[in-house]
Design a binder for these strands. Structure first.
Lengths: 117, 117
DNA sequence: CGGACTGTTAAGCATATGCTTAAGTATCAC
DNA sequence: GTGATACTTAAGCATATGCTTAACAGTCCG
């Protein structure tokens, strides 16, 4: 039991910050050290480390230290969980829209294609 | 273009709260009034209204008042924006994994397996 | 060894967030 | 009009968040 089930709360919370999204974007292109992550960001290294901790707690990022360098990488499964949640909601509302379409069709049933675009 | 581009910050921030995700889930199944949204939630109506404001500010929910009832519905496009962001990151890391596979294949290509461990 | 490099940790601070209670406003139903 | 219904708004409060600076701790290099 190394890592927690990474609740959606923490994942979305982590993604809510633009700095952290930049870090995730960078890591989507490949692993990076802490200072590489910090390079494009205009804030102290300390702040970057704190953002990194949020990302790791959320399960979005995993890191390992070798020598004096900590190398970070994304954990795709976690991002996919977030995506999956959104997908499931979409399934609900799309189902609803389909039924709505059926109802309209039923109402207009005797062939008059009102919105023929 | 009535409203602002609904920055991802606000969308992910809105989704970070479990109460608000319950509300979004409910609205994915169809429109609801404020008190209908509040029914499954163990907090004051006032708190629910405040959550609703967060959802509306994020662009995830739209609402309209008729008589004394405010009816709320989801705004699918906004959720899809969030999904799209995740999808785009995935495109990046998948591309990377593909190249990684290529490299491994190339390295092992012409038969001299010097360190076959 | 000594210094540069790469983080790490702690303290402090301003602002944001998620509630609460309490008081108010605008329907609707009789 | 009276009362119930359905929010709405404001104030207050505890905790969380996003930084900062400053001091500390390993690691590598000559």
């Amino acid at each position: 039991m190394l890592n927690s089930p990474a609740p959606l709360d923490l994942v979305f919370q982590a993604l809510a910050d633009p700095t952290r999204r930049i870090m995730v974007e960078r890591l989507s292109r490949g692993p990076a050290s802490v200072s590489e992550l910090a390079k494009p960001l205009s804030m102290s290294l300390s702040a970057v480390v704190q953002h990194l901790q949020v990302l790791e707690t959320s399960g979005l990022v995993r890191s390992e230290k070798v020598g004096r360098v900590r190398t970070c990488q994304i954990e795709p499964a976690t991002l996919q969980n977030a995506e999956a949640w959104i997908n499931q909601r979409r399934a609900l509302w799309e189902r609803r829209f389909d039924r709505l379409g059926d109802d309209l069709a039923t109402q207009n049933d005797d062939g008059d294609p009102t919105d023929s675009k």
